[in-house]
Simulated assay, not measured.
Amino acid sequence: MTSSPADLMRRNLLEVFNEPDPARRAAAIAATYSEDVVWHEPDRILRGRKELERRAEELRAENPDWVFQPVGTASELDDIGHLGFQYGPAGRPAVTGMDIARTEDGVVIELYTIVTEIHQPS
């Protein structure tokens, strides 16, 4: 069964970047992204599943109590998927943004993460 772009966006956020278990995260990465996926973050470009997996682990280690939460529902147009997110301590987002992905044959081939706002602590 081929995953839709919207399904891939939900999996990207919840099963990859929210997953604390490295083995489950690695399995989700293998099912979600092409081997040569390209991920554009605001300050870097990563190439390949291994780099994406390493960066996901870094994000978890930097803020182990933070979670990603979807904002709205995942949407799609042809081979493009989109999902807004919040990232921070549960119920107190520190960052908001969106992920946009190009997909092909049921996997993400290119991912763009756009940060739209960084919230100052109150």
Rank of each mutant, 00 (worst) to 15 (best):
M1A: 15
T2S: 14
T2G: 10
T2K: 13
S3D: 15
S4A: 07
D7K: 00
L8W: 10
R11H: 12
R11A: 15
N12D: 13
L13A: 01
L13Y: 06
E15A: 08
F17I: 01
F17L: 11
N18I: 01
P22S: 05
P22D: 12
R25W: 02
R25F: 09
R25D: 12
A26W: 09
A26P: 04
A27K: 05
A28E: 10
A30C: 09
A31D: 14
T32H: 10
T32V: 11
Y33W: 11
Y33D: 09
D36F: 05
D36V: 00
D36T: 05
V37G: 03
V37R: 04
V37D: 06
V38S: 12
W39R: 07
E41Q: 04
E41K: 01
P42K: 13
P42H: 14
D43H: 15
R44S: 14
R44V: 06
I45M: 14
I45F: 05
G48S: 08
R49H: 04
R49W: 03
K50R: 11
L52H: 05
E53T: 00
R54E: 14
R54D: 15
R55P: 04
A56S: 11
R60A: 12
E62R: 11
E62K: 07
D65L: 07
D65S: 13
F68E: 02
F68G: 03
F68M: 09
Q69Y: 05
Q69C: 04
P70I: 00
P70M: 09
G72S: 03
T73Q: 15
A74D: 01
A74G: 02
A74Y: 06
A74F: 03
S75R: 06
L77V: 06
L77I: 03
D78M: 02
D78R: 02
H82N: 11
H82S: 05
L83E: 04
L83R: 02
G84D: 08
F85L: 07
Q86P: 00
Y87M: 09
Y87S: 03
P89T: 04
P89S: 11
P89H: 07
A90V: 01
P93E: 07
P93R: 10
T96H: 09
T96D: 08
G97R: 03
M98Q: 14
D99G: 06
D99R: 10
D99P: 02
I100S: 11
I100V: 10
I100Y: 04
R102C: 12
G106F: 12
V108G: 05
E110I: 00
E110V: 00
E110W: 01
Y112C: 08
T113L: 07
I114G: 09
V115D: 10
T116E: 05
E117M: 07
I118A: 13
I118C: 08
H119G: 09
Q120R: 13
S122D: 15
